[in-house]
Write a protein that binds this DNA or RNA. Sequence first.
DNA 1: CGCCCTATTGAATATAATCAACCGCCGTGG
DNA 2: CCACGGCGGTTGATTATATTCAATAGGGCG
Lengths: 243, 243
Amino acid sequence: MNEFSARDSAADRSSCSRCVHRPLCQDTAPADQYPGRRIRIERRASLYQAGEQAGERIYNIRSGSFKLLRAAPRGEALVVGFALPPAFLGLNALGAAQHEDSAVALEDSEVCAISWHRAAAHGRREPLMRPGLHALLAREIRREQRAALMLRNTHAAQRMAELMLSLSRCHAANGYAATRFRLPMSRCDIASYLGVTAECVSRLIALFERQSLFELSRRDATLLDLPALQRVAAGHTPAEVQA
Amino acid sequence: MNEFSARDSAADRSSCSRCVHRPLCQDTAPADQYPGRRIRIERRASLYQAGEQAGERIYNIRSGSFKLLRAAPRGEALVVGFALPPAFLGLNALGAAQHEDSAVALEDSEVCAISWHRAAAHGRREPLMRPGLHALLAREIRREQRAALMLRNTHAAQRMAELMLSLSRCHAANGYAATRFRLPMSRCDIASYLGVTAECVSRLIALFERQSLFELSRRDATLLDLPALQRVAAGHTPAEVQA
DNA sequence: CGCCCTATTGAATATAATCAACCGCCGTGG
DNA sequence: CCACGGCGGTTGATTATATTCAATAGGGCG
């Protein structure tokens, strides 16, 4: 167990007893199948792919991480998002004939498949019109809008800082250290997601390290100055010194 | 009636008998209130604003157009989208305590307010789990993802071309001419939406006019070469000649 | 061990931002 | 009615930022 591993074991964390979505999952799985259908996806494998017929399931990520890919007009696939627990996958395919994006595991991962019409029925049974699935979908829209905001009128440095903070928040939300974690994605994935080139990402990392905002060797990140990172992400604190 | 006006009158087009969302609206309005509560929003007024308590309604745009604003980290509001019929507004606030964005009318507009829990109940009554509201929300997620794609790895010219094509498609979908329409938004709004400066938008328009892709005087647009526009939007056809 | 893929670094170039001036339209008010 | 002022839009010159092309370094995996 190295310094980047969790305080608890991975198996522990991915158990259903710790799942924040347990109420939903529990109520939507057939009684004899609870805790729902667990699916293991190994690194580089895809949970679903663009063009595939959309099943009527959504996926609750229990461990690991995914990148979401979409075909750009030119043909190549761009990263349109990353997904870590406690996110869902497949929400965007609801009611569609086929998937428009692909979900590729960045590391060996586990998801619980939930039938969405059961999930819908679940919300229905709840008293007082508990939002349930609708709220989940609406939240996803807001998340996308927020992400799109980051791509407008921001410099590459801001986007990079924002990504690091976002990953930090994810890890913290899962009970891991907020300032010390492993990036599951490659530099290329980051570049594609941020809408810049891989070279640019590399230079930004070097710059941030010179400024002691974080250390990042290989894929092991240590955030050193969260307030400064937030300042870069929010206001435009451009390159600053570069000595 | 000038050359940019519709073949039919505006009143005709905004009547419920022509509404593509009529089945939903009809089934969700109280019998005595059909065709639902019509709301008139005048130019520059907002249908809802960020921070306001979110009502439990969604809005079916019947005529006019809106821009969606969101507060950027620096404080100023950025345009995160435009909405023309037959789009809905307010989907992203479903289940949220308050609105995260603002919807501002770009011209005098009309919407039909639909109670979302009635809309949800509507989908529920339908046989075979007709997707209904869920599908609407999921489609919105896909739309956002697609829009976000445009902001990554694209040059300003591609974005501008894509916007013009997108507006063209909207107008065509509403039964108007696809190559001749009035832009409801200012250059600043366009710039904010595309994530570039207003100066850049101005230069792009000038460039496109020199290349005879379209004419755009004031806010009246005439698309002259749709295939070329699509080429610019898709592949990167950079500045090309600039004589 | 060696290859390949990912990542890094450098130099030159392209693109859009910034700063600044100017124009034209529109509404206001004299 | 016309003059004024302001806003939205355009254009130019300069600068900042990121891309592109190219070369190199480092790890992981066979």
